[in-house]
Structures are given as C-alpha cells and as structure tokens.
Design a binder for these strands. Structure first.
Lengths: 354, 354
DNA sequence: GGATCCCGGAGAAACGGTTCTCCTTCACCT
DNA sequence: AGGTGAAGGAGAACCGTTTCTCCGGGATCC
C-alpha cells in the first residue's frame, strides 16, 4: 500500500479498482485520518479560501455588519462560497499587513474599494483575482458588481413626485464611497432637470447619533421639504422621530422613503417605504463571479450571471473590467403614499407635471 | 546568500547583523516577495486561522447575522482575532464536511453548540481547541463563555414588578438552545417562587413572521399579562404593534421589555427597555480565550479575563471545562416605567411585595 | 601560539500531501 | 511462444518554508 494509492483513492483520481478505493477509505475512516490542508494547499496552489474585505467606512476602524446591507451581503457571500466548496475569511482592509500576507487566499471580494486602494492593487498585481461589490474608482479589479444606484434614486424621486411631493429633500452622507456619491449625484442631476432647488443635509454615515441630528436639521430648515429620501438604514427612524418633534404627520405632511434592508419599517407607525439593494443577490453574484475567475471559468460572456440577472450594462474584453449592474427593489408602504391614493393602483402620472 | 539567511532576516530570528537583515528586507521588498502562507503553515503547524462556527438555528440553514447579537458578536470576534494576528473563517456547522476538513484551523469558536454536536466532538478529539459562546450541553470544549441568563431574567422580572406589574408574560422560542432554555427556566422558576401562573407563548425564533403572530396571541389571551418580556430582538416591535392593535397603551396598560442589541428601540414610540447581552464583550472574550489556548497561555487562572470581567462562576482544573459567566445590561426606557415614576430615581422597593 | 569561543552564515532535513513517471504483472492476440 | 497493452500500484520529485546542525574564520584567552 503506497502513499500514491492512498492519495488517489481518497481523491477519486488515478486508476484504481473500486475494491481498493473503498478499502482505503474504510481504513482512513477508522483511523480518523484527515489530510493536511496546508500540505494540499502548498502542492496544489489552491487553499479553498476567499477573502471578504470590507473597507473601512469613514473613520471607523471596522464597520462590518454595521449596516444590515453588509451583514446580509456577507451572509449571502458566505453561503454562496460554501456551496461551491470555498470558505470565507473576513479581512478588514485595515488589518495589519502581516495578517493579510499570512493567509493563502485564492481570491478576494472587496466591498466598495476606495480609489487607488493599495491593498487591492497589490492583490491584483500578485495575480489574485479580485471582484468588487461597488463600482471601483481607479482600482484594477477582475470584475465588479453594483446596484444601479442612479436608476434607483431617480425611481424614488419619481415615485415621490407622483405621490404629490413638491420639494424633495435628501439625507445623505459625507463620505466619498461610490454609493453615496452616485446617489447624491443622481439627486442633484434630477433637481437640475426638474428645476427644483436641492434640499439636503449631509452627515458622517458611520455615526448613528449624527443621523438623528441631520434629520432634525433637514426638517428644521426654512425651505422644509415635503418629502425626504434617506440614504442610510437608520434614517427612517431618525426622520420619523424628527417629524414627530415638529408635529409633522407622515405621510400627510411629509412623505418618507429610506434605503434599508431592515423589516422593522414594515411595522413602524406608519410603515415606511424602503429601497432594498438586494444584498443577498449582490453577495451571491460577487462570489460566483470570483470563483469563476479562480477556476478559470469564462464568465466574461456573462452567460451564467446574465441569465439570472439581466445586466443593464456590462463591459467585456480588455480595458475596463467587466461590471454588472443589478436592479434594486422599492418596497412601497404607507409613508410615501397620500391617504387618498388607492394602494392597489398607482394614479396616472400627470404628463406636464414632474 | 542562503535560504536560511533570508528566512531568518525576514522573521527576525537567528543571529544576523542588522546590516544583513535590512539588506535582505530591502531586496525582498523590491522584488515584491511574499512568503507562502501554505508552506509556512505546513512547516510550523500554525495557520493563523480560527473558525467561527454558527450552529444552525432551528431549521434555517444559515442564520449568521440573522440576529443583531450574532452580527455584533462576530464583528467583535473578528476584531479581537485580528488584533492578535489571527483571521476568522466563517463556517456554519451545516457546511459540507469537505470544506471543513480542507481548512487548517488553529482553533474554533462555536456559537451555542447543541448537545452532542458531532462537529465539535471531532474537532476536540483531533486536538483543535474549541471555545463556545453559550454554555455547552454535553460537548467537550476547551472553555466556554456565556451571559448570566438566569440573573438577567430575574433582574428583568424584578424590574417589572417594581414598576407595578402584577402578571408578567413571556414571549419565548421553541428551540432548545441554551439561551432559550435557561431564560425560560428562569422565568418559570420565578413564577413558581412568587406564585404567579406562567403566561407565555412560544414560537420558532428563526421565523420573523411567527414572532408577530405569537405576540398577538400573547396579548389576546383571557389572562392577558400587564407586562411582557420578549426574548428575541424583533419582539419589541412585534409586541408594540400587537399592543396597538388591542388598544393597549405602553407603558400605562402594558409594560414592555425585550432582549435586543438594536438601538431602534431608543426611538420607538415609546422607547422600549431592552436587555443587552453585550455581544461585543462576549465575542472578544471568546476569541481571546481561544487564542490563549492555542498559544498555550494559561488562562485557566482567569487572570487576563478576570481582571476585566469578573466572573461569577468559573471552574478550573480537570473535569468540566472552565466557563465564564458575564453580566448583561438592562437599558431602562419608557416602556417599562409607569408615567408616575420619576426617571432619575427608582422608587423604593416595597419589602413585602415581590 | 594553540585551544576556545562566538559570530555569521550555509546545508539539509523535515512538514504532508499531489502528481508525473515508471515498473511489474498478467491477459490476450497472432 | 513472444510481443503488446492495459491494469494496478510503487517511487520519487516537488511545493516553499522553518529549524536544527554544522562549519569556517577571526577574535579572545591563557
């Protein structure tokens, strides 16, 4: 009984009669033998490990699971990786470099990389596939996936307009991540288009207390909006609390929408309309794209992903890395509908009015 | 220039003049050399990886980050591991076995292991240190950490009694995890002691919709409680919604407390008193205990942990594994205080009354 | 001046798998 | 009967570190 035979038997390789194979397996089982993952990795060059890098949000050292979006996304990513035989290592970008370099990673998912992230660049240079959640600024990545934030914001603004909003405000962040930037830009562009003066307040999104203050500021303005979209998860409760303080009824005096993955907004008083970024879908897609790249599957054609999630925009070939935009979902609840509105049928949109 | 010299120079070992050391480092840097993690792991037997196993909750395949507790705990654990040079691999207990055995783990954190978990047993047998969050039933573990759930529940019941509750109800789960079991038992024991008939409803905790239904059931009972403690995070909103449906004012007609790590309860109407299990503290402690075990540090004396978090109960030596109980924190808000109560001073407790 | 010691560094053996190559045996065919 | 081919299995190189041992040479010491 040679080492080769055992290895082949356990891995289903080589040309062995089934009898030998099963005998080896039986003995291995009885002995409680477990092959050394390190040795296997050393020889094969595959560790079965995928990094999940969450970049630091603002000043905070480590905001993984700070927002429900990340938590959900990470969960889906873990599941997706697992179902393809990979495990996920959570590695904040702020980690000490020695931790990073001490782990054999087959590839990395990076959430919302800042422009010119040195970490991503180094990984990419050293040949490790990198797929980013969030359209990367200047980093070279193997592929990326993002929501269609512009379409989402425009959809919400239209939705609020249809519900009768005359002046829509925005509660947004001070950070420069892709999400905040794209969303805010879409808002500003919309304002320019329809001729509304922008009404928005910004705050550091990583600071939960600041959100409440900013919500208050927004409703305290002389040009108080009659509808508000909050970009971050806690904004719904923040705005609701602020509205209560100012005696504003929702939705009668103030229409409310916020971006959130939490279902608490289904049971608030009133229930609040939310935009879901579908983090599960994003997480699953990102990981599958990454593993395709690791295993050399050509997903550049977008066949696998494209069938399930039609992309509005996908680049291919050399040059810019292939990106996939995925749709969001607006969950309409009472906070963005005037009482008169029937819930089943949306009123015809006045053509001339915005 | 030999291989040995390079290895020693890079790792700060051996006896080399600083000049050689820095020269090697400089060249390595210029070449973009990164040592192979796999080879190092193979040679040293240390991977720098620790597993974070979350057992499946009820029927759900994978409930990591389902509850804020887990999310927070995982976050703290990741941070703690990182700051000691380890990375965390998220590995649901339901993972395919081949994924498990394909990863070199130095140790594992397991959240709330069920009795006789085969996975934990195998790990423990094969010499991998295992530290559990949640007192383990019958699994052999290196150490464990848990909240003092009994004290927490008793504290809440006392708190509600002091606020004037005459009949306290419980919203609890159907699963058999330690948390649910200990908490429910504490409630039942308390009822027996004070002579109150238990008033509780159970539901599968992993099903968010079921919580609302159970909350409704509890308040629809003929022996409707005038105070309720909900064991799970969403119970606060569930109970609040149910109370609204029945026209019950909180806290006037119904006192409310729930166990939650979410700060949304600070801004609900009214704000709801919550019990925090301090998941960050738990996560940090668990990981540090595990790494101590991995590195052979004797934490059995509890010096490191004990200084920061005095344990009420800790076993040592052989026999049962050393466990640490950690205190919880009750965040008192309007929902558990009668309007008459002044918020700054708690009223003297009537001696005869419970 | 020779034995001793320390300094700086080189050699080589693991670590535990995977995999390419090769060898032996036996059946089969002509 | 000899050549051929396939089946089954054995050998050995290799993956890239760490670490133990050893070695040459210059300084030190008596």
């Amino acid at each position: 009984m040679s080492i080769t035979t055992v290895s082949d038997a356990l891995n289903g390789k080589g040309r062995l009669p089934d009898e030998t194979r099963s005998r080896v397996r039986e003995v291995a089982e009885r002995l409680g033998y477990r092959p050394s993952a390190a040795a296997r990795t050393l020889r094969t060059g595959r560790s079965g490990l995928i990094g999940l890098t969450v970049t630091t949000y603002g000043e905070e050292p480590f905001t993984f699971t700070e927002f429900a979006y990340f938590a959900e996304m990470a969960r889906a990513a873990t599941s997706a990786a697992l179902s393809r035989g990979y495990a996920l290592v959570v590695l904040p970008a702020s980690s000490r470099h020695d931790v990073w370099s001490n782990i054999a990673l087959d590839g990395t998912v990076v959430i919302d990389p800042p422009d010119q992230d040195p970490l991503v660049s180094e990984l990419y240079r050293s040949g490790v596939p990198v797929v980013s959640d969030g359209k990367p600024g200047n980093c070279p990545v193997t592929a990326w996936v993002d929501n269609d934030h512009e379409a989402a914001v425009l959809g919400i603004l239209d939705h609020l307009s249809e519900a009768g909003a005359r002046r829509i405000g925005l509660l947004t962040g001070t950070s420069t991540d892709t999400y905040t930037r794209l969303s805010t830009d879409a808002y500003l562009g919309w304002c320019r288009k329809v001729g509304q003066e922008p009404v928005y307040e910004t705050y550091p999104a990583h600071d939960p207390a600041a959100g409440a203050v900013a919500a208050d500021r927004l409703l305290a303005r002389p040009d108080r909006p009659d509808a508000v979209y909050g970009l971050f998860d806690p904004n719904g409760t923040d705005l609701l609390a602020a509205a209560r303080r100012y005696g504003l009824r929702v939705p009668d005096d103030l229409l409310l929408v916020c971006c959130s993955e939490s279902d608490v907004y289904a049971t608030t008083e009133p229930p609040i309309t939310t935009l879901s970024l579908k983090p599960r879908r994003i997480g699953t897609t990102v990981v599958n794209l990454l593993i395709d790249a690791i295993e050399g599957v050509d997903s550049g054609t977008g066949v696998d992903v494209g069938r399930l999630f039609p992309a509005r925009y996908r680049t291919a070939g050399t040059g810019p890395p292939p990106g996939t935009l995925m749709p969001t979902e607006l969950i309409v609840r009472a906070s963005s509908q005037r009482r008169s509105t029937r819930t089943t049928v949306s009123p015809p949109r006045p053509p001339g009015e915005v």
